[in-house]
Design a protein around this nucleic acid. Structure first.
Lengths: 150, 150
DNA sequence: CATCAATAATTGACCCGTCAACTAATTTAG
DNA sequence: CTAAATTAGTTGACGGGTCAATTATTGATG
């Protein structure tokens, strides 16, 4: 009984991984941009100007990753950066005009994509899903890192 | 109305990504091995000997990734490989004795981990979750890759 | 005020995954 | 029987993420 239940839990974990792994590359092929990069840009859309630490906090990825994304986006002219004159450690980031219009097109594609992902799933079911995922997420957050084997 | 619903869908996608990103590194720190590598080993546990293509098919990751995992596992003495004498293109993989006993310890840690992930979630709720994820997964699979912007 | 601690951002090393190109072995067809 | 297609596995280039170490700047404290 417990064994049976455990195996179902194992399967759920695999499902979560599987969905992520299937979805990420497809998202990128469909929209032309990766999910996390678009998420970064989406945040920038909302705030006009923001420093990297705050951006990192909101998108919740490593600051190293943020730096590299922004560097490339800067080179492509999607984003511009300047130092905070009152504190030379922090750098402000904002979208360029070109970037802004590009993103709109990305978001259009994203909309199609997302619609397809949840095809046939009712509002109510999505609410249930969201609740369950939130609880899982919270459990994951609470897990203490332990000593690995060896 | 539709906008509201859409934003919830967006959030769900973010949640899925978030869980994956949070879980993967934690899993590895807790158990001492990565999820996909343990999944590979788990499969090997069940089948005694198997060729790489079949393994790739079952675990559903790129053959390049499989090759690299097995190469490292081979070097660590967890796994042994030999060519199929009847078809020199295929290579058979199997666990070594040392590997087999190591995996048992990993699985023990994994069990703790998974238990924590689903803490406070009932069997019935897990069943619902599994169903919803399956449907999402199936939708993702059906998405046709389209032309990206530009 | 001079030193030591904290903070923001960057960089390097590494893991994991994809795709595309390549090698080698085996089938298949002409 | 040989040439072309297929198949298994490997490798290289690349994108994305983490952690740990480093740099530069600012803040705090004796």
């Amino acid at each position: 009984m417990l064994t049976n239940s455990y195996q179902e839990q194992e399967k759920l974990i695999l499902q979560l991984n599987e969905i992520y792994r299937q979805m990420s590359p497809k998202f990128e092929r469909c929209t032309g941009i990766s999910q996390s990069r678009l998420e970064l840009l989406h945040k920038l859309m909302e705030v006009d100007e923001i420093n990297q630490t705050e951006l990192r906090r909101q998108v919740n990825i490593d600051s190293a990753a943020v730096t590299r994304h922004l560097k490339q986006l800067d080179e492509k002219g999607v984003v511009s950066r300047r130092k905070n004159p009152e504190d030379n450690r922090v750098t402000f980031v904002k979208l360029t005009e070109a970037g802004r219009s590009k993103i709109e097109r990305y978001c259009k594609e994203k909309e199609n994509f997302i619609t397809q992902v949840f095809k046939g799933i009712t509002d109510q079911e999505r609410a249930v899903l969201s609740d369950l995922l939130s609880r899982v997420e919270s459990n994951v957050k609470d897990i203490e890192d332990e000593q690995p084997i060896e």
